[in-house]
Design a protein around this nucleic acid. Structure first.
Lengths: 103, 103
DNA sequence: AACATGCGTTAGTTGACACTAACGTTAGTA
DNA sequence: TACTAACGTTAGTGTCAACTAACGCATGTT
């Protein structure tokens, strides 16, 4: 959870998520949107992937990425427990935790 | 928005938000929860306040803080529109929003 | 006035991180 | 095998941020 919020705190990474939101894209395609090096994008992709916000698929030498919806949903629901805070929120979080195991 | 996500990315600041979630607390009280300097906490409080996640009230020499719910709500809604973008997503978000109201 | 209380603020340090340049790796092709 | 394409990875650099120590600034109190 900490890693996910950390990943989202970086503007460039949120931009990447926006790019792959509506469909898959290869690493090179994603990098083409920006003026920085492919290396920089590659590192961002790793951070997003480790945070559970991105999924990777391979096609030959290409690596194709798409958004992982559950990752963002977990972040949102975590922020909700900041409200409710008590048992209700904690219960919901616990249920998510179980579900996460199966995914 | 960028500042809010940035503020939330820091674990210590999320801990502070948890402390003042259920009620107001003075800066010193908040600092007492941690093993770092009051100065460090004071700086965190400033970041949270500038991000719109905290409200400040003065009582004599004391400064009393409480969570600003709208700030967190804005972050949540931002993350929701992050996915959706389209109609289908928005509809799904709207349904979740209804459920959330009852909590 | 003098002092204490409860803070925020500043200077300086250390570690994290976003980035570039160069290299390594894997899959496909001539 | 040699070569290219499409990546990831590593070393090194500059910048930001979290922290401590010292100081400054109000508000009460004696």
């Amino acid at each position: 959870m900490d890693t996910a919020l950390h990943a989202l705190a970086e503007p460039r990474r949120r931009a990447i998520l926006n790019i792959v939101r509506d469909g898959e894209k290869a690493a090179g395609e994603i990098a083409a949107y920006f003026d920085v090096t492919r290396s920089a994008i590659s590192q961002h992709l790793k951070v997003l992937k480790d945070a559970g916000l991105l999924e990777e698929r391979r096609d030959g030498t290409r690596r194709i990425y798409r958004a992982r919806r559950e990752g963002l949903r977990e972040v949102r629901e975590y922020l909700e427990t900041f409200w409710s805070g008590r048992l209700q929120g904690l219960k919901r979080v616990a249920e998510q935790e179980e579900r996460r195991q199966r995914v």
